[in-house]
Design a protein around this nucleic acid. Sequence first.
DNA 1: CGGTCATGTCAACGGTTGTTGACAACATTC
DNA 2: GAATGTTGTCAACAACCGTTGACATGACCG
Lengths: 178, 178
Amino acid sequence: MSRSETTRDRLLHHARTLLWTHGYSNVSLRQIAAAAGVDVALIARYFGSKRGLFEATLDGAFDLPPVTSETALVDMVVALFTTSPCGETAPTVLQLLLMNAHDEQVGGAVRAAHHTGMQSRLDRLLGDPRRAALFMAAVLGMSVAEKSLRLPGIGPHDTHDYAAQLRHMLGAALSFAR
Amino acid sequence: MSRSETTRDRLLHHARTLLWTHGYSNVSLRQIAAAAGVDVALIARYFGSKRGLFEATLDGAFDLPPVTSETALVDMVVALFTTSPCGETAPTVLQLLLMNAHDEQVGGAVRAAHHTGMQSRLDRLLGDPRRAALFMAAVLGMSVAEKSLRLPGIGPHDTHDYAAQLRHMLGAALSFAR
DNA sequence: CGGTCATGTCAACGGTTGTTGACAACATTC
DNA sequence: GAATGTTGTCAACAACCGTTGACATGACCG
């Protein structure tokens, strides 16, 4: 790996961590560069602009392992929203997804990444965009209520329990979706 | 109403509109003042700081009409998340709620307002924090999936349909919540 | 060794931010 | 009408922002 690639990866890693957890406009390029231990100007060199860096951050963010079973895919989605993908202080996919709420440009990129990386596969495997959307809504609701809103009535669930409940909820949602 | 109260209310109104829809750090005090047609310095006079203005914005944001029936309260919550409270370009409560995701200080204020204004009443009327949290998760999931993530599989539902589905979902959620 | 390209450093640019204090215009009360 | 307190205006502050270009340093190849 060339020298430039390692610093590029370092920038990408810390950009993901900081931007996803604290939001696009709450983190400056100087903070990211400082966390990565490199100069600010290198961001412009490697990613062009702040938006370019953020969009590079979206690469493969919603990718799922290549499973073919319906329940396996569902479990993968639940797992992706339940656990931090890499490490303890790592940002969650949920926080990335919620970045779309208040910024039209950032939101468009996030929605596009989610659709091509995750939702389209759900559509295909669950057979119906409506079923997939309702399942996504169930996962989102649980995640937002627990992780973002921190409702005392929910969690901390262990992953198994959580997935089981969501699968149950999925069954209910799909039953009235027909 | 004194002169100062009207300009205070104008500031509050436009602050709500702009801050809730575009996020805390995406809107400057100068934009808010310009929208309200007053000088920037008046914000400091009436609200002390940007945070003070935002927190004044939270006043009564999650308040619900004083109903006592369980289903009536549930309908009120659904209605609050489904419709814009005042006018077409008005910001939604959902956007306010999602502001808690990426800013710890702002998020704390939002969560507190939501808890005292809405969740505590749900806890009381539904009898169980767990039931209330699961209901909230269902409403949140539907709202985020439709309004924020804009999943093509969901909506646009007319309000009646939407509420009916959520009430059905509530039944399912509550059934496996015991 | 000398030349060439990749990589990193530094300083600065114009613009915007939240906040402050001095001052003018106005209304109210004596 | 004069004095007083309220309400609004203006200019400025220091700090930070994303972005740019010039320059130093390193690696690599002929």
